[in-house]
Simulated assay, not measured.
Amino acid sequence: MTSRQTVLHDVREVLGKAGLRQVSDVETWLVGSEVVFKVAVAPHEREGAAAVPGRVLEALRGAGLTLARASSDVCAAPGDMFPAEALSQGHAVRVG
């Protein structure tokens, strides 16, 4: 496993341990050398969905991981958004 695949695996594991499901709650993938993720459920789609961004942030911070803006043109949030704000609005961010 390459180091970026290891980070991707670790991020998925952290989120899974926090009760966040891959695809239905959060999507994670590799873009170049970045591990990128986003919240995959809109707040109105099901009960408890509005809490998912906060749970993601809490789980990542608890594991010592930080957020950064995604640099890929394909998945980057608008340039004036902080990573936590971008995550809460359904944009992709990266593990920094």
Rank of each mutant, 00 (worst) to 15 (best):
M1A: 14
S3W: 06
S3L: 09
S3N: 11
Q5T: 05
T6C: 03
T6Y: 13
H9F: 10
H9E: 03
D10M: 06
V11S: 05
L15F: 02
G16L: 06
G19S: 03
R21Y: 02
Q22S: 15
Q22V: 09
D25G: 04
V26H: 04
V31F: 03
V31N: 10
E34S: 15
E34H: 13
E34C: 12
F37N: 05
F37K: 12
K38M: 06
A40K: 01
P43L: 01
E45I: 00
E47N: 14
A49R: 00
A50G: 15
A51V: 02
V52P: 00
P53Q: 06
G54L: 07
G54D: 14
R55M: 13
V56E: 00
V56D: 01
E58G: 12
A59N: 05
L60I: 09
R61P: 10
G62D: 04
L65Q: 13
L65D: 08
T66G: 10
T66N: 12
R69E: 11
S72D: 07
V74T: 08
A76V: 02
A77T: 03
M81H: 07
M81I: 05
F82T: 10
A84K: 03
A84P: 14
E85D: 15
A86N: 06
S88A: 15
G90Q: 00
A92W: 02
V93W: 01
G96V: 14
G96C: 11
